[in-house]
Amino acid sequence: MSEPVISTAPQGAPPSDVSDPVLSLVAHADDNLILAERLGEWISRAPELEEDIAIGNIALDHLGVARALYTHAGQLEGMGRGEDDFAMRRPERGFLNVLLVEQPNGDFAHTMVRGLFFDAYQVELWADLSGSGDATLSGIAGRALKEARYHLLHTSSWVIRLGDGTDESHRRAQRAVDVMWRYTAEMFEGAASGYRDIWEKVIGDVLDEARLQIPDDPYQRSGGRRGFHSEHLGPLLAEMQWMQRSHPGLTW
């Protein structure tokens, strides 16, 4: 694969230090929360009833991981912030998720390809963090790893079915790969760079079996981990945070 050409944050913008343990937890939580929001949009809209149930379960998994990570981050931070403080009261520029997860669902192929790329990364991440010296984190990672393996089975199976299905599904799957590819390099910035090789192998095998091509395009986007998002995050947060922002300080 060609060397990525990264389109990133404005010049002079300070990076957020996701090597900081609290921010690192928040970044992974944000990944999972934003993806959970996206997957939730499929509920009552999936191509078949069984798939509606499966996607809903996957969304609940991601939401559960996000909540556990926010809670742990809040405890480590020691400023009394809870899961809803992180989810509902930070502005767009405070979110540290990768750009991949905030991309719109598009058609079913887009969603499955986005999921494939993210799930393969999550499996490496949680396998690594299962060995963390932070006991709470390693516990969360252990559970998240089991779930991520199941998610990867689900999305990779679908990408293969769509890539090697009908002409139309192949066309849509290839388009999805072409569109989502530019958001993949970002997942391997910083400490995560060690996961890249295995991820490439896993993805390469799946796309091969799916008869799909990896784009020969060095263009990559970045900035999410520094709070510089695509135009898609804003509306998502506006909807998600609406109740808390319009009725501040109440319990539900």
């Binding site: 069984e50 199941y150 199976s157």
Partner: peptide
């Protein structure tokens, strides 16, 4: 019972639908 195109997805779906994993 459930509906699926092949055995592999039938098994995956069965886990989600009938055992909640």
């Amino acid at each position: 019972s459930l509906h699926a195109a092949d055995a592999e997805s039938a098994l995956q779906n069965a886990r989600d639908v009938y055992t909640r994993r």
